[in-house]
């Protein structure tokens, strides 16, 4: 049985993570008026539809893309030396110290509580068309999986092969990738909850929600 109290104490001892903000593609960088120590907000709204604080703008082929903060937190470093310059993909612009939210703590604990079906090798993963349609229509928790079910398509080196699920029967409780993402071997693709443990998982969620105090 999962020791929730111990896990929560462990997370409380180091309740933040440092998030690196890098450019998703090439372009010319223009920073917003921000400095080290400033607080920024992450996406908000019921569906996270309102983007976070704009950290910088990246212009490529006459298109300007805002780079919003992916999480709320505090700026710990900014590369002001890149202002107005052409940058290559992956260049780090700034770092944010982010304190974990309830939802993130729940996700961290769920990763320990659920059965994780991991990517067997580095490749692009897709759900099979039938499963994909079901998830899009009714959500991942509408999909029941069992050992041997053809669940994924693995695309690697110009080849596509089907991948069967192996593990306990249950519902897909969490999906950790987007169709077509390149996933490293060993990284989780889905978290499966056996139906008889759904109540226990729900208890974990309730407990974190009542015990975890969010910080700015």
């Amino acid at each position: 049985m999962l020791n929730i109290k111990e896990l929560l104490e462990e997370i409380k001892a180091s309740p933040y993570e440092e998030v690196e903000i890098s450019v998703p593609h090439t372009g010319i960088v223009e920073f917003s008026d921000l400095k080290v120590g400033d607080k920024v907000t992450g996406p908000t709204g019921e569906w996270k539809e309102k983007p976070g604080t704009v950290l910088a703008k990246l212009t490529r082929e006459r298109n300007t893309k805002s780079i919003p903060a992916p999480e709320k937190g505090e700026i710990v470093s900014i590369r002001h030396d890149l202002e107005g310059k052409f940058v290559e993909a992956g260049e780090v612009l700034l770092r944010i110290r982010h304190f974990l939210s309830k939802e993130e703590v729940i996700q961290l604990i769920l990763k320990k509580a659920l059965f994780l079906f991991n990517a067997p090798e580095k490749a692009k993963y897709y759900f099979t068309p039938e499963i994909d349609t079901k998830i899009k229509g009714s959500g991942e928790r509408s999909v029941k999986v069992r050992d041997g079910l053809e669940l994924f398509i693995v695309s690697r080196m110009k080849r596509e092969t089907p991948l069967n699920y192996t593990g306990p029967e249950g519902v897909i409780y969490a999906v950790y990738f987007h169709n077509g993402d390149n996933i490293d071997g060993g990284q989780p693709l889905i978290g499966v909850c056996p139906e008889d443990q759904l109540k226990h998982i729900q208890d974990v969620v309730t407990r974190v929600q009542s015990e975890w105090e969010e910080r700015d």
Partner: peptide, 19 residues
């Protein structure tokens, strides 16, 4: 030499071409 996000992203290619 330029690092880009993807060989299949045309905007990356044009952005580097101009630079």
């Amino acid at each position: 030499l330029y690092c880009i996000s993807s060989y299949s992203d045309a905007n990356e290619i044009f952005s580097v071409a101009d630079s």
